[in-house]
Write a protein that binds this DNA or RNA. Structure first.
Lengths: 148, 148
DNA sequence: CTCAATTTGGTTGCGCACAACTCAATCGAG
DNA sequence: CTCGATTGAGTTGTGCGCAACCAAATTGAG
């Protein structure tokens, strides 16, 4: 592989992920708009619907986001009435995030989102499952390499 | 596939792309910092080093970014002395972007970036090439589905 | 017990992304 | 040619991401 190819090739992997990620959120946007959620807020809802209550630290580890991103995001979601934040009694450093009734009430509508997105992706379920596995494996190798 | 799986599965494809894309830019960041570039600015440099001069419209089509993103980004790069912007004589609506000598002079150092990133990815070149092809194909299917 | 180091979450500042809008230039139907 | 529609950039406002920094709570070596 020549150096010229390397520039184009390497660009294409990072650029492919960058473009695909943004195109993906564009697919979600109209569906999430009906729920009053942004895409990162949707991810927070998925995390909370699966496990709750949870600390900001754990949420950050799950979503790979730091407090600089999560703090204002959670504040907006709390202002929207979807969740509550409270200091842990056990460890006053920790903030525990819980869904409100209004947040929990979105479960059904959130469960309908993936089917709506699938139609807009233009790929088969098999292709999506396979790609997800490949990207997830790649991400795991990257995180392991960085961790060393 | 149950609806419960669908939520988790679908989440995982979009979330995998979202996480992998961000982890990827994290790999680039320290290398690009030495060049005084952000990751989107690096993509602009790659596009310009491959074809130049180019209009803002064409640059946006290449990078899938609109003027709301590109205008201030290009303004910052112009302020950094990397490129110039000028109205086209043929069509006064268009703005033509060209590299300055300082911008062109970065070609060599930019060409060294991919090799540096490769080391931090933890994946083989074969894995990266294969994943790039899969993600690019997925992106193409998505754009085709949206275009219909 | 004590106090320095660590952990947790928050704030600030900057640079994207993107929607919504404005304006000037160009196009094109009639 | 004319004028309404379209196109290409730019501006504004909002919401991420993330680095850098801060304060408070906790931990742990001595």
């Amino acid at each position: 592989m020549t150096e010229r190819d390397a520039v184009r090739l390497e660009q294409q992997l990072c650029f492919a992920l960058y473009s695909a990620s943004r195109a993906m959120t564009t697919c979600y946007r109209p569906l999430l708009e009906d729920l009053g959620l942004t895409y990162p807020q949707y991810l927070v809802m998925l995390a909370l619907l699966e496990r709750e209550p949870v600390t900001v630290k754990d949420l950050g580890a799950t979503l790979r986001l730091d407090s600089g991103t999560l703090s204002p995001l959670l504040k907006r979601m709390a202002a929207a009435g979807l969740l509550t934040r409270s200091r842990s009694a056990v460890d006053e450093r920790s903030v525990v995030v819980s869904l409100t009734e209004a947040g929990e009430a979105l479960r059904g509508r959130i469960a309908e989102v993936p089917a709506g997105v699938l139609a807009a992706l233009g790929s088969s379920l098999e292709q999506i499952v396979a790609l997800q596995a490949d990207v997830t494996a790649f991400l795991a190798r990257m995180e392991r390499a960085v961790g060393e």
